[in-house]
Write a protein that binds this DNA or RNA. Structure first.
Lengths: 224, 224
DNA sequence: CAGTATCCTCGAGGATACTG
DNA sequence: CAGTATCCTCGAGGATACTG
């Protein structure tokens, strides 16, 4: 079989060999993030419908590797499996920072992108009166989306104009990729404002936009 | 095709989907550890003989993901690819600490295990006159292996008695799993001496064995 | 609920020869 | 050297029904 070709003493190679498999990684992530679970929970909880026989096979392998233990009807991570959690979280941080987005999603699912932007707002730094960021895409002026920010309130995105006080509006025009980069925290506002993003509105608000958002944190995130 | 089932906005899921593949991980590790390389170097350098068509396919995919760039005849990691290096190193650290060893290897390839032990010796802490650790396995008294330690000299393992000054010998009897745990740095000497490992020889040397070795570091290792 | 057993398909990947 | 093209095989994995 394929995997035995790689036998040797390089534990690193072995790790790649065993973990270089969607299902094993998904199972480990699932157990790491949602805790011990039974067979059926795993079968339905994993992304993309795993077949029962494949799940059984993978769980068997993960047990023989010593990463997963089976007792009292649930599968749980062993010490070795738990030791892998930081690596998995590191992968997650990387993915959130670097994985290319599908540019079409901005127009297809703007609410998702707005959600990402909203999550980058830093609650304490927001102005105490509501501010609305109105986004327009270059070359696609017909679409507009809004992000409402206020200290003490949860930032939220709207697909319709929230119709707040007109002089609390900031108008942002950006390209699709720039908007995604901002939403992902890959670029900050200072950067994109110097590079093609058009911002208009009350100068006292416009000058502070950069402070309201934080770029990607990546490190320091923990499993709950 | 299989991978499109998982489309969605979860970058983490996407990462697992794309990186949950032996070859992609091997290629990234190769480029991370040995730098930019041409097609044929990769084809021959990767563990376990990758076929040319698969390599071409994976390189194409890694490029379209933005992790690898191709220019001037070599493939190299992009910024995004380089961003993955800490994750890969984290996996390496985990593997070296946790991945189960094959107990048979102790008898099949004792030199490898001795090499691991030797690498755990801390140069500065060794005695300035040579010391020989003679290892015997419980239940397998016929096999003996030696590890020679001296400050300023590279620690080395022997499969034959180095025949040094008799009162510089320490005799160690351990089980296979314990020996592997020591060699891997999963357990330290204080721990195993309290738990079944028999150590005999000059008390002034015996009392210091624990100081000479360091358990697993894991963190802090860098790619050269 | 927690799997195992069976059957079947398709496509990943190996081997090899070829091309720019 | 750096791939592409072709062909072929085998086995991973899906679907489904069954069992303790």
């Amino acid at each position: 079989m394929g995997s035995s070709e790689f036998t040797g003493y390089c534990s690193f190679t072995k790790a790649i060999e065993h973990l270089g498999d969607r299902w094993n990684l998904f199972i480990l992530r699932e157990l790491a993030m949602f805790g011990p679970q039974g067979f059926n929970d795993l079968a339905t909880g994993l992304p993309g419908r795993i077949s029962r026989s494949v799940l059984a096979d993978r769980l068997r392998k993960l047990q023989s590797l010593g990463l997963v233990a089976h007792a009292e009807g649930v599968y749980r991570l062993t010490a070795a499996g738990t030791g892998l959690v930081p690596t998995i979280m590191s992968l997650r941080g990387w993915a959130e920072t670097w994985l290319p987005d599908d540019p079409d999603m901005v127009e297809r699912d703007p609410d998702v992108v707005l959600g990402w932007l909203a999550r980058r707002a830093v609650a304490e730094r927001l102005p105490d009166r509501p501010v609305v960021l109105e986004f327009t895409l270059h070359h696609h002026r017909e679409h507009r989306w809004w992000l409402v920010l206020q200290q003490g309130a949860e930032p939220y995105g709207c697909l319709r104009d929230p119709l707040l006080d007109e002089n609390r509006y900031l108008y942002v025009q950006a390209s699709i990729t720039t908007l995604l980069a901002l939403a992902r925290g890959r670029r900050d506002w200072v950067d994109v404002l110097a590079d093609g993003v058009v911002l208009s509105g009350p100068p006292d608000l416009a000058s502070r936009v950069a402070e309201w958002f934080t770029p990607s944190a990546v490190a320091g995130e923990r499993v709950s």
